[in-house]
Amino acid sequence: MATINELKCAIKDKLESRGVLGQLKARIRAEVFSALEDHKEPGPPLSHENLIINQLILEYLEFNNYRYAASVLSAESGQPKVPLDRQFLANELRVSEDSSSKAVPLLYGLVSHFWNSNDKGGKVFLCGSSLPATTTSNPTLGPEY
């Protein structure tokens, strides 16, 4: 007769081999965040920049069937329940799309654009965020990181 520990190990191994254990853990996390969201005070409003970035990430997660990761991000970030329209995102990012690019998340198109850029040796100049800079303290990294 198998012991309780052997049974637990066998079930865990079976769930891992079927790829279910990770999904279960992610689902539990998502439900915990959702439950906490019901009882906490509303967070600060999302900036326009964060709203766009979160939606790009959510589109990528959902395309790749990372539904639980997407639900955790939605719950933690306070992203609106109704997703932003893809055409709105493309307009905000000043992106033009063809029919084939519309079949994949915008992040894929953005990465592809930079990988296939004709400027093979140059660097892209990035401007700072429109968000105000914040300073935080981290004992392992120093007073500001």
Rank of each mutant, 00 (worst) to 15 (best):
A75L: 01
P83S: 02
A10L: 12
V82E: 15
E62K: 05
V20M: 09
R94P: 05
G142W: 03
T136H: 05
L106G: 04
R18K: 13
E144Q: 11
G121R: 11
E92G: 00
I28N: 03
D119N: 10
L73F: 01
G43W: 08
E76C: 06
D119W: 07
P105N: 00
L15T: 01
N5Y: 13
A30D: 06
E6G: 12
P132M: 04
F114I: 10
K81D: 11
P80R: 03
P83K: 02
E41H: 07
L24M: 06
Y60C: 10
L106H: 04
K14N: 11
E144A: 11
T136K: 10
L107K: 05
N5R: 12
F125P: 01
L51P: 04
S96E: 15
L46Y: 05
E76A: 07
G22Q: 00
P45F: 03
L24N: 00
V20T: 08
E37D: 14
P139H: 06
P42T: 12
V32W: 06
L106I: 12
S47R: 03
K81C: 07
F114S: 09
S129H: 04
E59V: 07
H39I: 12
A133D: 13
P143A: 01
K12F: 14
N5V: 13
K25N: 05
A103D: 15
G128Q: 05
D119H: 08
L61E: 06
E62T: 02
L73W: 03
T140I: 13
G22Y: 02
P42R: 10
L73R: 04
Y145V: 09
T135C: 03
P139V: 09
L21C: 03
S99A: 15
A26P: 05
N50I: 06
V72H: 05
